[in-house]
Design a protein around this nucleic acid. Structure first.
Lengths: 338, 338
DNA sequence: ATGAAAGCGCTAACAC
DNA sequence: GTGTTAGCGCTTTCAT
């Protein structure tokens, strides 16, 4: 660990630690000449203040935690990017915690964060998070901002996109392309973004006078083999879907591969729309129609709100919540123009 | 920040803080009965020890820093994933710092890390890092492990892949596919992985009796528009390449798009091999032949070595260096089998 | 303008 | 088996 301390500087300069500390912090009660001397020696000795000593006294760590399900995912990595950009700019440090979609991990991590390790938390829930006690407890101790997979039950700022609308748009787009039977890939029963996307899907069906068919819902599974099997079953069935909305980008590859395997052509036999932030969507075979979230901006915004709140305590949190629009990009996977 | 302290527990229980501390740490010099009492109250009051107080005393933060160029990148996000997995398992916390390929940012970050904020550092250099003083300084204070974009000048553990060989393999593969003129996309002049891949490329050319042609080297630029322009120029030239090795995955999309734009068919007119960890390579149009690095494992290994070193100081660092093999996956972008 | 001293929360000698 | 004390590195009253 870092070695050279204020005490050493003080001794070397025949000053008190107090004087050195004040000089280092450019206090007005220190003469210019001593400030000079202190600063010079500090630079010469390569003095770097020990952050944890300061934190202990000031009860302020200048550190935030980012708790997300996964980082090897284009949405979350872009969001993290946005968060980190703001953090560094504001002089904060970011601890990263991955839950890997495990509820238990989320609870353990949040429990640790009650310690005072961080001044604030930015997070996105696990797919399986269905109780909220651990969130409520932490939120009493430390400011939290949620993004994307937010917790409706907690009274704090939340950054989301227009999920219901996007579910609607994606579905409506497939309806416009003459799809007769539209399946949807759903990620979670408990997550609000998931149910919102599902609601949009159902509303679109209803608006065009179609009945909601529960057999059209394919649930995402942790087990990749299981996912492939689900898709095979769905695509082989007598009344197989001719359109599919994937609310989670990681299953896009599976859809393409299973379609290929079964000789289903995209988009002729099956039209696909996927929620995705992946940069390769334009060069897929065929290029993929997507709902794309403003991932970087969501991260940036979440961080900005958190840091603003960290400055002035008198913030009305929930009023800071924002809904950023996602965008539908129509490409070849959902149109006839291949 | 966290509020309930050992002092409070002590008062409540009519014990000294020392006794409480020992009880909490399950010391043998404390009676079972008091341990019980302490543990119960701690649980009831939801006591969580303040990490920075401990760090200050123990001169140990249980925190590491991960310094990488970018996180919205499949290689680095997978590596981060590997690092975080190990860290959490060992009870460590991971601070994440993104350099965004800026040398200045790298220096600033490393300077801060001299403070004792972390017990160790895992990092991958900027494309532009060409002096090493900041690395040497930090390495004297805190153990460092490099991965992928390593610094040869520093005497510590380095996790790499067989970059020279991979450059060779990729090039040889294109030669085997009858490519007459093979271009290479290079990322940096100063990075050792970059020059190794380049060396492999040159060796393959030489082995098949070809001359190295400097005009075949396309340099990666920060500016996306500039990159596209470079590719257009190269692909339009009279003696345009019929094969290309991309040593950096982010330009794959550009290659595909420019080829499309100019009416060049992949693989018929232009065969492509790219270094990539992207999960969508199999469903690109056409599917992409890749050199794929063991990203997750590299992160895991780097972390394991670091944590092992943190335990026992008597470690011979350089001997811990490891070269993990990358793998060539032949797909349609480089073969005739479309 | 500078110094002495206390204290942030914790642990580790060293008493008793 | 439990308490007293000192100290990690820093800032901040409160003297002087």
């Amino acid at each position: 660990m870092g070695n050279i301390t204020i005490k050493m500087l003080a001794k070397e300069l025949n000053l008190s630690t107090a004087a050195v500390s004040k000089a280092l912090n450019d206090s007005h009660e220190i003469s210019e000449s001593t400030k000079q001397r202190v600063l010079e020696l500090a630079a010469a000795l390569n003095y770097v203040p020990h952050p944890y000593a300061g934190s202990l006294r000031e009860k302020k760590s200048n550190t935030i935690a980012v708790v997300i399900p996964e980082v090897a995912d284009s949405f979350f990595s872009l969001a993290l990017n946005g968060i980190e950009s703001v953090a560094i700019e504001k002089g904060y440090h970011a601890l990263i915690y991955l839950t890997h979609e495990r509820f238990e991990r989320e609870k353990t991590i949040l429990k640790d964060l009650e310690s005072g390790r961080v001044d604030g938390v930015i997070m996105s829930l696990t797919m399986k998070t269905n109780t909220f006690g651990h969130l409520k407890t932490l939120n009493k101790i430390v400011p939290m901002v949620f993004f994307d997979r937010v917790c409706e039950e907690i009274d704090t700022a939340k950054i989301t996109t227009n999920d219901e609308e996007c579910g609607y748009q994606a579905t409506q787009h497939l309806i416009d392309q003459d799809c007769k039977k539209i399946a949807i890939l759903s990620i979670s029963d408990s997550l609000s973004i998931s149910s919102k996307r599902m609601q949009g899907y159902q509303r679109a069906l209803l608006d065009s006078g179609r009945a909601y068919d529960a057999s059209c819902v394919i649930d995402y599974s942790e087990d990749p083999a299981e996912n492939l099997e689900q898709l095979r079953k769905a695509f082989k069935a007598a009344g197989r879907p001719d359109g599919i909305v994937a609310t989670v980008s990681k299953m896009t590859t599976d859809i393409y591969l299973v379609a290929m395997e079964l000789g289903l052509r995209i988009p002729e036999d099956l039209k696909v729309v996927s929620f995705s932030n992946d940069s390769t969507v334009a060069i897929l075979n065929p290029s993929l129609t997507t709902i794309t979230q403003p991932a970087f901006e969501m991260g940036e915004l979440a961080a900005n709100i958190l840091f603003r709140a960290l400055k002035k305590k008198d913030l009305i949190w929930t009023e800071e919540s924002r809904v950023l629009p996602s965008q539908l990009f129509i490409r070849n996977s959902s149109t006839g123009s291949l």
